[in-house]
Nucleic acid binder design. Structure first.
Lengths: 213, 213
DNA sequence: GTCTATACGTAGATAGAC
DNA sequence: GTCTATCTACGTATAGAC
């Protein structure tokens, strides 16, 4: 039932969510419990009955709130992508396109989200394959746009001469990838705040991109 | 049945494995098919019947080769961790402890494995939670040792003054994390060879660690 | 080693009363 | 909205013949 710490997909042990992201009442409660169970055991190893029990209802009642188990997952993944995209977009104002400051702000927002809301980030990044194409589509659009924001920032910085990398796409994958993994290892046992990690990783990203010192 | 490209957990579309890693005959064939199915759909969404059909046998026959579906996964994950650990250990000779060359060699080995054998790397890193503790134990030992190799390298490099980072653990998570993600995005559609990526990421790691230029 | 046949539990989802 | 009861399909695994 309980997975040993070293084998868990995520180290975090509390469900945290962006304020106001979820609906009130039972529908919201179901999403919270689904987030916890899907992140820990995976979508396919969590049954409707598991989810209902954790939510304090019977399995049949779940269907008055969501048409299927897949729709519950889809809603969580969509909300996760939206929160992520919103955070990145909010990081742009106040920074010049293609500046080192803009890249630092984007990385900080990316990593902060992964550290503050690791369950949400983990599900959004690891369970998308379980959705039918129609339910995955909104998240894919947001994901493509978030990615483009970061790639544009790297490319414009290269044009402006503030960065120095042989291949901008590889820099993107490295910077984005190290941030995504934070959702897996960050937990209450670590001595860092999410802000600590976001700042450190932003500095790493600037070094990696060869930003002028 | 088939997952759209943008939703797949891994971009690779061919099963590649270190030469000689798997047994010959039917037992090996089962592992190859399990690798493909588990990596694509996940352990819990692949049934014994799916696996048997892909292997060219009936589901009952599978039990003459492995005692359970979980044992098939355990074997794959163990082999993956062994291949990874062996590759890291083989990178050490010829480099001085704590040197920038050693970190570069370790990162190159790490990333090369993730790019050459993405299915194996992906499963080893994302399905460990599905194993009972007894079956996961051998892999956990190898994982801890691999991690320590990299952490020692960073710490000794700091002592020697060849690196410059405020927090070695955060550098470790960033360097290891960006490499692990390569298994997810690298595929035949990208214009890079695994060696290209390994070299680029090794350079990124040195920059990130503040290696003297 | 491989098969056919099957046991037995649990999965997702629905019917209809309250 | 929530329940009890239930449908039907599929899950892992086993029995026993060849």
């Amino acid at each position: 039932m309980t997975i040993p710490a070293e084998q868990r997909r995520i180290a975090a042990d509390e469900v945290r969510l962006p304020p106001g992201l979820l609906p009130d009442g039972r529908s919201g409660r179901i999403l919270v419990e689904a987030l916890r169970l899907f992140a820990e055991y995976g979508f396919h190893d969590t049954s409707i009955r598991d989810l209902a029990k954790a939510s304090g209802i019977r399995s049949a009642t779940l269907y008055t709130h969501y048409p299927s188990k897949e729709h519950v997952l889809a809603e969580l993944i969509r909300l996760g992508h939206e929160a992520h995209h919103t955070a990145l977009a909010a990081a742009l104002p106040g920074t010049a396109p293609g500046s080192a400051e803009r890249l630092a702000a984007l990385v900080r927002a990316h990593v902060l989200g992964c550290a503050r809301y690791p369950l949400l980030a983990s599900i959004a990044n690891s369970e998308l394959h379980a959705l039918s194409p129609g339910l995955a589509a909104p998240s894919l659009l947001l994901r493509a746009d978030s990615r483009q924001m970061m790639l544009d920032t790297i490319n414009l910085g290269l044009d402006a001469g503030v960065f120095d990398v042989p291949d901008p796409f590889l820099a993107l994958t490295a910077i984005a990838g190290m941030g995504i993994r934070v959702a897996n290892w960050y937990g209450s046992a670590t001595p860092y705040t999410p802000e600590d990690i976001a700042d450190s990783y932003a500095a790493f990203a600037l070094r990696l991109a060869g930003a002028r010192a």
